[in-house]
Structure formats: structure tokens, C-alpha cells
Design a protein around this nucleic acid. Sequence first.
DNA 1: AGCGTAGGTTCCATTTGTGAACGGAGAATT
DNA 2: AATTCTCCGTTCACAAATGGAACCTACGCT
Lengths: 121, 121
Amino acid sequence: MERNNSSKASRWDELATDWCPVARALSVIGDRWTMLIIRDCFLGKSRFEEFQTSLGVTRHVLSDRLKRLVERGVLERNAYSQRPLRYEYRLSDKGRDFAPALVGLKDWGKKHMPVRKPAAV
Amino acid sequence: MERNNSSKASRWDELATDWCPVARALSVIGDRWTMLIIRDCFLGKSRFEEFQTSLGVTRHVLSDRLKRLVERGVLERNAYSQRPLRYEYRLSDKGRDFAPALVGLKDWGKKHMPVRKPAAV
DNA sequence: AGCGTAGGTTCCATTTGTGAACGGAGAATT
DNA sequence: AATTCTCCGTTCACAAATGGAACCTACGCT
């Protein structure tokens, strides 16, 4: 499905080589769900099932995103169990460097998207 | 196409009311192209054609994004010409508050996505 | 043997994005 | 006055991404 390397490039996936560093950053984390996976990593989550239940994203989109993030060096994939072979995903230094951007988004969300409480009846 | 308000909600468009402020921010700017439109606004661009040629996004996706950003108060739409009635899109205060997040992305892109120059032959 | 769990993959329907053409309204050119 | 140009979109057919559910593998538990 995703990751078919034979297709012609659309403008979106030319962003990785754009002149603008913001565009290049978005080529890595500009897809749906990706930034939220990174947020979950900052919150200490590391396993497939954790991300899946936390985000409600479908499993194969999650699978695709994790694969891309590992390919691009934002996450590292390590076996946390050998006998049932199981992997966890952890932020690399490159991934941890998203902290300032994430904080920027957090501050904006807090200020401009207040949680709507049900009207007290 | 987009903006049909009768459809059932998927997880993605429930983000606007998520407990996490990062998720709420992403519900506004987490779509493809949206953050790049905001970047262009910071760079002084304000008109439909400017965004379109700068980004290479298709016209009706651009049209959709601008509409959403105005609806959500990130951009303001003002007539800049009366006789051919034409509009421009400018950042509101709410939109300008994306500056820190944008800077975070810029710094990450500069550090971790260096521009590949063609090998000097 | 049968069930549960973690981490995926596969299938199909729906939604979103792309690419190109079309439209309208006024401006500028011939 | 007719044609062309510019700006800001809309519409259409097709391709790609996403959603939702089922399935699979390998192991552990009872």
C-alpha cells in the first residue's frame, strides 16, 4: 500500500528536498498521526498496542508511520523481549529534538483551543 | 467534497476536543499543506495565486484549506480590491501565535534535514 | 487442546488529494 | 467591441491515503 517506490512523485513528497527547512521538517512529521505518535513517545509510550489504543488510529496506518519514523531516524526499534520476539519504539536524539516544536503546538492548543466543558445545567 | 458536515466523525476529526492540547492544535494545522500556508503568510504572502504557485498544491485543496483557516480564526479574509472584488488572507493574532511552533520546526529541519547539494563533479 | 496477547498484514469501502479543464468578472490590449 | 489576460475560484475523473474489520504468527497460560 503505502511506500510504493515506483509511483511518480507528487509535490507533497518533494518536500524532503525543499529549500525551506519548515517544509523539510513537515516531510517527516507532516502526515496524519505522525506528530501524535511522537507526542506519545514523549509521554513514555513505546509499544504498538499502546500507540494504537491511545490514538485510535488503524493498525496498518500505525504500522506504516512507525516504519517511516524508524527509516528516517526519528525512532529506534529495539527488541524488548526475545522469546516472544517483541519490539518497542523509542525516540532517538533526532526525535527528541522535536521537543521545542511540540511545546510550541502545546502552548498554542492551550491558549487557542480551550476544552469545551459541557454547559453546567 | 470536503466540508460535508453530515458525515460520521472519524477519530481524526475528533481531535478538536481531545484532552491533549497538542492534538487540539493538530486538529487545526495537522492537515497536509496547512502549516505551509501559514509559513507563506509569515513570509508575507497573502493571495490565492501566491500560495498556489509557491506551494504547487492543487487549487481546490488550497481553496479548502483557506476556508478552514478563516473559519477557525487563524486567517482573516479581507477585500484588497473592490472593483474587481478580490480578497487577501492575513494572519490573525491567533495565527501569529503559531510562530514559536513554526520556529521549532524550522530549527529541526535545519539541523536534521540538511539540503543535499549535487555532488561537486 | 483451546484461549489470550502482542505485533503486525490483508482486504475492501470511503475519503482525500491530484491534475487538468472550465467559469466569471473585471482589466488591458488590438 | 471583441479578444485576451489576470485572479480566484469550482467541477470532474482518476489516483492515493485512510478507516474498519478480519486474519495471521508466535508464544504463554490453563
